[in-house]
Computed example of a mutant assay.
Amino acid sequence: MAGPITVVLADDHPLYLEGIAGALERRPDVDVVGRAEDGAEALRLVREQDPDVAVVDVRLPLMTGLDVLHAVRRDGLRTRVVLLTGESESATVYEAVQAGVDGYLSKAADRREIGDAIVTVHRGGTVLGPEAQSALTQEVRGRVQDDAPVLSARERQVLRLIAEGLSGPAIARELQIGAATVKTHTQNVYDKLGVSERAAAVAVAMRRRLLE
């Protein structure tokens, strides 16, 4: 039968660290093998103890929780990493997910939730708390908008009419502009969307939510 899950804890608030350690030590399936109050010590303990899971505060002195995560991944260590945070900043959550974080929870989560998250990530799962999920969604949406090509108001009108199936001459009549001008706007739209024909332009525009 497999033994308890070995865990290293890191938080720069001694009372919080003591509280979470005490709660986890009462679980028969978890064994706290190290505690740290800064990121450098946390990484040293991870390398020394080779724990199954490291539960690390995002904001630590010397090395942040993200720094520890990046180092664990860079060095190919087997330890799975759960980050805890008082504030789920969207950019930080996004970076952590990109770096391969196994869990991301609010420090407001109760001790049982944190213990259950440790079990889940040890089994190969990923745990994102509600705050982290919301922050990640916000960041992804913002990045999609930032990546969207900048179309002029007229180019957007032309794109919308293309999507409605109007021909070049019909678009010219609808907008009361010359056919040559429509062709110019259409080509500009194609260039900005990285396409060469109408159907592809509409598909890309829908995917990037340019027609909403």
Score class of each variant (00 low, 15 high):
V127R: 12
E113H: 14
V53E: 01
L159V: 07
M206P: 02
T85W: 02
V202G: 13
E87M: 09
L105P: 10
R156P: 05
I177G: 01
R26I: 06
M206W: 07
L159S: 06
L211P: 01
E164T: 08
E25F: 09
A96M: 02
M63Q: 02
P28R: 10
R173P: 05
R141C: 05
E25Q: 12
E37A: 15
D29C: 06
V204G: 06
A203C: 11
A42M: 00
G178D: 13
V119N: 12
G3I: 11
G65Q: 00
Q176W: 04
G129S: 12
D38I: 07
G178Q: 10
V93G: 00
S90L: 01
D57W: 00
P4I: 09
L193A: 09
V82Y: 07
S90V: 01
P4R: 11
V158G: 07
T186C: 06
V55S: 03
E95N: 05
Q98T: 05
V81P: 00
Q98N: 15
V56N: 01
G124L: 15
T181D: 07
Q157I: 04
L24S: 05
T6S: 11
L159M: 04
G86I: 02
L136H: 01
T64K: 08
E41H: 13
G100T: 10
V119Q: 14
G76R: 12
L166W: 08
E212N: 13
D110C: 12
D146V: 10
L128D: 08
I162R: 07
L66T: 03
G142I: 03
E89L: 01
A54D: 04
V32M: 06
G100H: 06
E164M: 10
V58P: 00
E174S: 12
V7Y: 04
G3C: 07
V204M: 11
G178H: 07
Q145I: 03
P14N: 11
L84R: 01
E41P: 06
E212I: 12
L211H: 04
T186M: 14
T137V: 02
R59H: 07
Q138T: 04
R123S: 15
R198D: 13
Q187I: 14
E131G: 04
S134L: 04
V144N: 09
H185E: 11
T181N: 06
D67S: 11
D11F: 07
L136V: 03
A170W: 03
P51C: 10
L69S: 02
A91Y: 00
V56S: 06
L105W: 10
V93E: 00
K107P: 06
A2D: 12
V202T: 09
A163C: 13
E139A: 09
A10P: 05
G142D: 09
L151V: 03
A172H: 00
A153S: 15
S88E: 02
E48C: 03
L17Y: 07
T6F: 02
E113P: 14
